[in-house]
Each structure stands twice: as structure tokens, then as C-alpha cells.
Design a protein around this nucleic acid. Structure first.
Lengths: 193, 193
DNA sequence: CCTCGATGTCATCATGGAATGACATCAGGC
DNA sequence: GCCTGATGTCATTCCATGATGACATCGAGG
């Protein structure tokens, strides 16, 4: 363990901020924005919930901060490459994608949140795929990209909720194989119209 | 119209029940379970919200009743047949699938609800697909069925939320074409393992 | 060592929502 | 034409939640 002096930690606002951010990220992906309470967050972070208001301005802004956290990572060059897809699956299984993915599938009430999340979704997933499809000369590249992202979202979220038993338990490699078939197949009926 | 005597309707508990059921169905698909309030339901139904408690026992039981409403329809023989998929898309666009589909993607807090919705999902979508894949002799028929349902769920929900612009606006026929490619393709890499 | 801003803790408020029970009104049996 | 159960209306209660402000505690600079 990091130390037995957990009884009293020195004041450290940066650390508190981080802890809140991390806890909020976890809970938002586990239960969604609405169902996670500020008290939940505080408890998991081991930090008083009142600090959410102080450091972020409120639950909503905390959520936005969590989203921002996300955008700091490298943009994927090619979403459907094997490695990339594998990494994505791993992250989803770790529960790190929830907030962004969920946006595609259940609308947020707060317009600010919805906008921010949509932007993320676009920049991180739809955009790259769109580029790829365009480069490949497929028809309706954007529509195809959105379709693929929507499908992927359904798969990743369904897996994480456990509503579909075999999907939830499936071996990542096998899943990867099937998903890749599903999404990347330049095969079926692409008559280029 | 049915009559100008709308000022005062005779007491009719059956009718009230129906109105509540219908309004609840709409609102649950529009906003999800958590975000629709009993007052909302009452208002849309033109019925006092207190009757929800009286006739159904509470908001939760109302939701279960809505799900049951759903299961009264004929079971699809073959989910991926063109006609069936078209019908499904139409229903989703009319917002009639929300409650069941959402289950796959965001877990309910109440175990009763989660179970009931999962059962529906299985009976109505996963099951038939599983049968089809089995008949076709595909490998891992159940996993494939769940995967397809998850993907379809993502697509239908994303379309209804409007988070992905082109997907939301896409012509049903074109969408159908692409989705069918995506899901039905017995093509890519099915090495039968 | 004392002060003062920063940080953390706690009690409390305001809001909204589900549920409940008291009351009003209707409709059929005597 | 009342009486009684069924149906509908309304006010109220209870609870969860997000936010806020008063207070306590820390620690650096004078």
C-alpha cells in the first residue's frame, strides 16, 4: 500500500480534483450521468462531494471535464485497423468509453453536454472512419462511418451492460474477429451506388 | 372527431388505463424511464397521474405493463429478411422500440425491469436470429445473434436520437440496404471455426 | 507564533418527483 | 330518490438530490 498514514492527508487541491475526475469517470460509465449522484462520486473518490461544486462548478461541468480528459489522447489514424479496434475494445471493457458512446444512443437533456459529447464522438470515431472510407472510395462515406460507429456503440455498450450474456462473456479475440467481419467487410453488396 | 362532448367523459377505468399505457409508452421511448415523470405521463394521457398508482401500482409496474403490451405482437420468423428488417426500422422510427432496445445498452436499476426487458429482447430479436444462424450452420450462432442485435440496437437508437446527423436523416431504403449488408453478410471471413 | 488564504467538512436549503390518503363525483341497486 | 362502491381529483407527505454557505483546519509568509 502507498502508506499507512491515510488517516490524514495533507491538503492538496490538485489531488482532490484528480480523484473526483477519476471517480466521476468510472461512475458515469457505470451508471450514466443521471443516475450517479454527486454523493456517490464524492464517496468513491474519498473526497467531500461539496468540492465538486468548488472545483468544477457543478455536476454538469464535472461531466464536461471528464469528456475533456478523454480528448487528450492521440487520435486514431485508422479505427478499423486490427490494433486500433483491439485497443478500443480493451478501453470499453475497462469502462472508459461509456460517457462518449452513450451519447450516440441516449440523448442528454443538457444541450451543452450533448454538444460536447457529440463533438467527441465525431472527432474520435466518426471522423477517422469517414476518412478511411473516403480514401477507399466507398459510396456515402459519412453515412457508412456513422453506421459503423452506431453499430460499434451498440456492441460495446451491450457487452458492458451484460444484457446479452454470450456477448458479455465472449473472448475479446473472438469478438474482435466477428466485429471486424461485421464492420470492415468491403464485401457484401457494395455496388458503389 | 369522436365527439364534441370532450368536456366531460363518463367514468371509464379501462379507457383511463389504456390512455396511461399509451402515453407512458411514448414517453418512455422518447426520454427513457428515469426522465419521464408520472406527472408527464398523466398530462399526456389527459388523466390524473394518481391513477397510475391505482391502476398499475406505480411507475415501475406501469413500465412492465408497457413491455407486456409489446410482447403481444407476432414473433418475427426471420429477423433479417428484407420485409422484417424494414418493418423493424419503421417501428423504431415511430419510436415504438425504445424501452426494449435501450435495455441492451443501458442497464436499469430495478432488477425486475431489467429482467423483463431482457426477456423481451431475447424472445423478440435474439432468439429468432439465433434460430436462423443455427439453421444456416454458422459458427457461434448465439454470439452472432447477440452481436447482430447489439449492432442493430446501436443503429436504431442512434438514428432516433439524432446524435449522428446523416444516420438520422438517411432514407430508410438506403439505410436498409447498408444495414442488411452489415448484418446479413455471410461473406467475410466466416471460416466456420 | 500569528495571520490569512487555501482547502476541507458539515449542516442546511430548495427542488422535484413518486406515492398516499382524504375528499368529490359518478352510476347502478333498492 | 337514496346508498354504496367505483372512479376521478386534489393536497400533502416523504425522500433523494444538487447546491450553497458557515465553519474548521491546514500551512506558508511575515
Amino acid at each position: 500500500m502507498t502508506g499507512p498514514r491515510s488517516a490524514r492527508r495533507p491538503y492538496d487541491s490538485a489531488r482532490s480534483r484528480e480523484l473526483l475526475l477519476a471517480a466521476a469517470g468510472e461512475l458515469f460509465t457505470e451508471k450514466g450521468f443521471d443516475r450517479t449522484t454527486t454523493r456517490d462520486i464524492g464517496e468513491r473518490a474519498g473526497v467531500d462531494a461539496a468540492l465538486i461544486a468548488r472545483y468544477f462548478g457543478g455536476k454538469t461541468q464535472l461531466y464536461l471535464a471528464v469528456l475533456r480528459t478523454w480528448s487528450e489522447e492521440a487520435v486514431p489514424a485508422d479505427l478499423l485497423s486490427d490494433g486500433r479496434l483491439r485497443a478500443l475494445l480493451a478501453r470499453a471493457d475497462r469502462g472508459e468509453l461509456g460517457p462518449v458512446l452513450r451519447t450516440a444512443v441516449v440523448p442528454h437533456t443538457d444541450p451543452d453536454i450533448q454538444d460536447a459529447a457529440r463533438t467527441q464522438l465525431d472527432a474520435r470515431l466518426v471522423g477517422p472512419l469517414h476518412d478511411r472510407f473516403t480514401a477507399e472510395g466507398r459510396s456515402r462515406p459519412r453515412l457508412r462511418a456513422e453506421l459503423a460507429v452506431a453499430a460499434l456503440t451498440g456492441i460495446l455498450l451491450a457487452r458492458s451492460t451484460g444484457a446479452l450474456a454470450e456477448l458479455a462473456d465472449a473472448d475479446p479475440d473472438e469478438l474482435l474477429h466477428l466485429v471486424h467481419d461485421l464492420l470492415a467487410s468491403p464485401s457484401a453488396g457494395d455496388d458503389g451506388n
